[in-house]
Design a protein around this nucleic acid. Sequence first.
DNA 1: TAGACAATTGAATCGCTCTTCAAAAAGCCA
DNA 2: TGGCTTTTTGAAGAGCGATTCAATTGTCTA
Lengths: 216, 216
Amino acid sequence: MVFDKRGIMTRKGRADRRLDLIAAAHRAIIRYGTEGVHLNHVAEEAGLTSGAVLYHYPRLGELLVDAHHAGMERFYEQRLKRINGMRDPAEKLVVTIRSGLPHGPDDPDVRLLNELGGAAARNRMYALLLTTLYDRQVSLYQSILDTGAALGTFTLTGDALVIARNLVALEDAYGYRITARHPVIGPEEAVELILAYARIATGNPLKANNPLKTSH
Amino acid sequence: MVFDKRGIMTRKGRADRRLDLIAAAHRAIIRYGTEGVHLNHVAEEAGLTSGAVLYHYPRLGELLVDAHHAGMERFYEQRLKRINGMRDPAEKLVVTIRSGLPHGPDDPDVRLLNELGGAAARNRMYALLLTTLYDRQVSLYQSILDTGAALGTFTLTGDALVIARNLVALEDAYGYRITARHPVIGPEEAVELILAYARIATGNPLKANNPLKTSH
DNA sequence: TAGACAATTGAATCGCTCTTCAAAAAGCCA
DNA sequence: TGGCTTTTTGAAGAGCGATTCAATTGTCTA
């Protein structure tokens, strides 16, 4: 951020302001839905007037697409970062599963992704974004599975591609359940459910060691 | 429907018109999204003016909830009907899996369900509807699995509840992929993916005999 | 068939959103 | 500091959507 001598945030450069707007759009989308956001919502989130938003993004639609795109990119990059440097495929797999689920019902990144489920059926751009993300996640899982199989850590029950697709599908679905506040299925429970599949699919007793907190 | 002597549709009774409006709302929601539908969209779908819609449903929100509720109910009832009378748990399982997936990208029933994914995080009513549907579907699968296990048709790899939850989750997720027009994953492919899990979970070689048409 | 009731229309109103744009404010640089 | 550019504001106008309601039309019944 840019501050003046008094420590007050001042005007921003073109690129900075665009990033601000993307972040503001992210929040506005979560609050009002991809198809319910209005220009004023975004402007308010950004602490600007609608005119200023229009100055940088003449068309609201483009800003929304950028926001979704950026959110997905960040989501995926964060997942990669978490397993960065890990050796053990089993550990990698467990961490990847965990990182694909929302931290809680209000997780902003997953909330953003979930917004697109309905819109993708109507909007080619959103469909492409979602489909691409899905396929990239499948590839990620597939490479972990293949590596584990090559090292003898996993004994796959079937095609790695099939298992990978199912793992991503499970993540997606439990993400929806969690953000919809299912009374029983929270992040920990979802991890266990997905691991139940991952264990029989890999033949590995995958320990769900939560690095952050003990399971409820 | 009600017709006059000339065979032209005439005014309808209270109940009939409400059902019409629910059907119209269903179409409008699919076209514009749960949070993008406007009163005029529904009115146009119903072939009426906005005033007439308001006469029956003073608040659009209630009509939309009713439409989602009715759509879910129908979706679930249809699934029950398909396996009605079947004896073999294996056949029942396969048919149930198939009936949980959209027939294609434009399947209206699944499109309607998918609309709620994002809205449920923001709207308690929608969250409750979705969660309830999920739980009912889980119960359906669970009873099939339990019956199969009792008869010796299935040899379950783990808790029936866990398997049931995962099967419904997979259906949900592939429903989204299909309605988003994934270039590779269509209804047939999704059935095979879910069956891959169902087979190792039940120890039964579940044949995917498509009763309607040959696989693509 | 007259009268009562139910359903629907269409116009009027209100408020909100998008869009444009001139003016103002803030930063930059010589 | 003074002038130039970039960014932001705020106001004005056009248009749309929700809402209300009087008038109209169709249906039913006695």
